[in-house]
Write a protein that binds this DNA or RNA. Structure first.
Lengths: 208, 208
DNA sequence: TTTCTATTTGACCATTTGATCAGATTAGTG
DNA sequence: CACTAATCTGATCAAATGGTCAAATAGAAA
C-alpha cells in the first residue's frame, strides 16, 4: 500500500536520476548502470522503461524544456520595462539556482551543436524569442528604453544568468564561496537588474 | 625534404585535431581512433606521442590555456576605462571567433566541475581576476565609472562574450545566420562595449 | 657499415557498456 | 479462480574502445 511505486512515479525517478548523470557526465559519458544503481533498480528495468540510452536522454531533455516553457510563459509582458526585466531575471536566476543541472545539461547540448534540439529551437524557442524582440522594439519606439539591438540584449540576459549555473565551479572558486545560496542569488539578480536598467536608461525608482 | 614532419610538428597536428574532437564530443565522447584518422596516423602512433587519452586531453587544455594567458597578459591596463573595456571585449570576441572550439572545450570542462583545472583556476585565473577587480575598484574610487560589484561585472563580460562561442548553434539559429563572420563579430563587440559603457556612466566619445 | 635510439605500426587484448531475451513475478479483469 | 497483459530482472551478448607489445623502419652518430 501507499508505496506509490507505480509506473509513472518510477519513470519520474529515473528521469530525475538520469538528468543528474547526464548533466555531470554528458550524453556519452553517462553510464546506464550508474543511473540504474542510483535509482536502486536493475539496469534491465531502466531499459524496459526507456528502450535506449538515446531515448532516455531525449526524454530528459523534453522534461527540462517543457518545464522551462511553462515557467516563461507565465511571464506577463504587460508590465513596464523595469518590472518586466526584474521578473525575467528573477525567474531565470531562480531556475538557475533551483536546478543548475538542467541548465548544465542544456548548455552541453547546445555546445555540441544541439543535435537533439533542432525542432525545439526553431519551434519553441524561436517564437518566444521573436516575441521578446518585438516587445523590446516597441519599448524603444515608445522611448521607454534606450535604442539598441534587441537581439543581443536578450542574448546578454540569457548569457549572464545562465553563466551562474554553467560556470558555477569557476564562479564559486573566484568568489571564495562554497555554494550558490539564496543570498548570492538575490544579490546577483539585483546586480543584473540594476546594470541592465542603467544601460537602458531606466531609472531606479529609488533614485527617481 | 621539407616535409616538416618532425616530432614537434606532428604533435602539434595531433593536438589541433584532438582539440576539435574533444570540443565537439567531450572528453568521454571523443574517440582516439577518430582523432588518429583525422590526423592520418595510426592509433598506435597517437598513443606513442601521448601515452593515454587523459594525457592527450590535458595537453590540449594546457595549450588552450597558455594561449589565452598570453593574449590577456598583453592587455595594457594603463588606459582609460573606455579604452580598456574596448580592448578587453575586442580581444575576447576575437578569440571567440577565431577559435570557438577552444572556448567550447573549456566550457564543457567547467560545466563538469573543472576536474582537470583546479590548479589553473586558482593559480592563473584567480590572480588575473583579482587584478581586474582591483583596477575596477580603483576606477570606482576615482569616480571614473559608476560604483557597482566589480566581481559580477567581470563575470558579465566573461559570460556575454563566451556566449557567442559556446551557444553559437543557438545564436546563429535565432539570428538566421550561417556563420559567425567578421561583421557579426564587430557588431557584437560594438554592442557590448556600448552597453557596458552606458551602464557604467562612461559617455561615448561620439556623444560627448 | 655498425650501433644505438627514436619513431612507426599492425596485431592483439581486456574491459566496458548498451542492449537483448527468456523466464519469473505482479497487477488487473471477468 | 482463471486468464491476460504489464512489469521486473538475472544472465548473456556483440560491439566498441582504450591501451599494450613486439617487430619493423628510419635516423643519427661513430
Amino acid at each position: 500500500m501507499g508505496t506509490l511505486s507505480n509506473t509513472h512515479a518510477l519513470q519520474d525517478r529515473l528521469l530525475t536520476v538520469a538528468k543528474e548523470e547526464f548533466a555531470k557526465q554528458g550524453l556519452k559519458g553517462a553510464r546506464l548502470q550508474k543511473i540504474a544503481d542510483e535509482a536502486q533498480v536493475p539496469k534491465a528495468t531502466l531499459l524496459y522503461h526507456f528502450k535506449s540510452k538515446t531515448v532516455l536522454y531525449q526524454r530528459v531533455l523534453e522534461t527540462i524544456l517543457s518545464a522551462w516553457d511553462e515557467g516563461f510563459e507565465e511571464l506577463t509582458i504587460d508590465a513596464e520595462p523595469e518590472i518586466f526585466f526584474r521578473r525575467l531575471i528573477d525567474t531565470k536566476i531562480a531556475s538557475v539556482r533551483t536546478d543548475p543541472l538542467a541548465s548544465k545539461l542544456f548548455a552541453q547540448e547546445i555546445i555540441q551543436g544541439a543535435p537533439h534540439l533542432d525542432a525545439h529551437l526553431s519551434q519553441q524557442v524561436k517564437p518566444w524569442f521573436r516575441q521578446q524582440v518585438s516587445i523590446l522594439e516597441q519599448w524603444m519606439d515608445e522611448g521607454k528604453i534606450r535604442r539598441t539591438d534587441p537581439t543581443r540584449l536578450i542574448f546578454l540576459i540569457w548569457a549572464t544568468t545562465q553563466h551562474y549555473a554553467d560556470f558555477q565551479a569557476q564562479v564559486l572558486t573566484l568568489m571564495n564561496r562554497q555554494e550558490f545560496d539564496a543570498e548570492l542569488a538575490t544579490d546577483t539578480s539585483t546586480f543584473l537588474h540594476e546594470f541592465i536598467c542603467n544601460s537602458l536608461g531606466i531609472m531606479d525608482p529609488k533614485h527617481r
